[in-house]
Computed example of a mutant assay.
Amino acid sequence: MAEQGTYVEPGREYTRDTRYIETRITADGRDGYPVEAGRYRLVAARACPWANRSIIVRRLLGLEDAISMGLSGPTHDARSWTFDLDPGGVDPVLGIERLQQAYFARTPDYPRGITVPAIVDIPSGAVVTNNYPQITLDFSTEWTAYHRDGAPDLYPEHLRDEIDEVAGLVYRDVNNGVYRCGFAGSQEAYEKAYDQLFSRIDWLEERLATQRYLVGDTITEADVRLFTTLARFDAVYHGHFKCNRSKLSEMPVLWAYARDLFTTPGFGDTIDFAQIKEHYYVVHRDVNPNGIIPKGPDLAGWLEPHHREQLGGRPFGDGTPPGPVPADEQVPAHATPLH
């Protein structure tokens, strides 16, 4: 997501605006947007953890041919994410320079943040939804007609209550918790968020010490949601957001868990560490006034053996790993240790 404008309000606790466009794309088309291959474009940014979720789930389920993807650059101004990575700075499918244009096509003078991920209806050029938690769930449950052969069940019906519960705790204390630390406007607000964050991390260390994945014995939506925060922890949150009790690489269980997922097809091959660092350190000028991007950390550790397979588990259940990343969606070699 983009948090336009001022990030830190002096004296105040950071509160995320979670009022999203709740229209859904469904198999029955009840909101006016039926599932249809080629009709919609996922606009994401590799820098953003919330958008990264949708990139991972789209890839795990094999939806690349059904839902095209446009990628914003890692930085944005106060108005909007922009398509800096495309020739001429224009998205080649939507024909726009700013994601804001697609929001305005849906709601003129759209009053809230221009966020990623967003799904755009290509014929009208209008955003359908930016409700990122629902987007990935709908990829799993509404787009089944277009899943690849061997696609995993990331939201199995018999585990949904537990997945929702765990994901809710992780969102409150970890996914959003790092932002509540980084954008805290007072010492009190920061320390409260910090304590909640690391209390939950201790809980996760204990939970994952005896099971390979968060819920059940396969990868689920809950793992996707935790992973995108862990992938950014040492590169950004530890220093930039002052989440510095310990680095991820100093948390034995979570570090091994994160490496396990990172080396699983569909996870690490979506991570662009260069874009991640550029986004946070350049855009958040009230946290990092000079916009200096750190050189570290060393990424080689992500490929160290994790030994998590000793806990059992079947990453894709009865399914199979996704195939190679499409050539036009590969992360540049300099931005990941996987190359």
Rank of each mutant, 00 (worst) to 15 (best):
R12N: 10
G317C: 04
S68V: 06
R308A: 01
A209W: 01
L303M: 11
R245I: 05
F233Q: 03
G319K: 01
P152H: 02
A44P: 03
D84Q: 15
D318E: 13
T136S: 13
Q211D: 03
T82K: 14
V283D: 06
F273Y: 15
D173K: 09
F183S: 11
H147Q: 10
R46Y: 07
S72C: 15
R98T: 12
A167V: 02
A44K: 02
A327T: 08
S68C: 05
G182E: 07
G317K: 03
V127N: 05
H158T: 14
R212A: 01
I67G: 01
R19G: 08
I201W: 03
T320V: 13
L261W: 00
M69G: 04
L208V: 02
E329I: 03
G313S: 03
L63W: 04
R46G: 05
R59K: 11
H279A: 09
I25M: 09
A327Q: 06
P289Y: 12
S199T: 15
P265W: 00
R160V: 07
E191Q: 14
A45P: 07
R232M: 07
N131D: 15
Q330V: 13
R53I: 08
V120H: 10
A335Q: 08
I119H: 05
V325I: 10
G177Q: 05
T336N: 06
D272A: 05
L159S: 11
D91M: 12
I67M: 12
V120C: 11
L226M: 05
A37K: 14
D17W: 10
D195P: 01
T264S: 03
N290G: 10
G150L: 02
T141Q: 15
R212N: 02
T82I: 14
G323W: 01
L254S: 03
A145V: 13
V325S: 00
A66N: 10
G323D: 01
Q134G: 07
P156C: 10
I276N: 00
D31N: 14
R53E: 06
N130S: 12
K242N: 14
L214A: 05
G62L: 06
R259S: 00
C48L: 08
L226C: 04
L299Y: 04
G266K: 00
I201R: 00
G168D: 06
V331G: 01
V120A: 10
G296R: 04
A45G: 15
T263P: 02
D149K: 10
D217M: 03
L60Y: 02
D202C: 06
I122M: 09
A184P: 05
T320F: 02
Y33A: 12
P123I: 10
L338K: 01
T320Q: 10
H76Q: 12
V93G: 06
H158K: 13
E142W: 09
E191T: 11
P87T: 11
K247W: 07
D217S: 11
P252I: 00
G168R: 06
D65E: 15
G88Q: 13
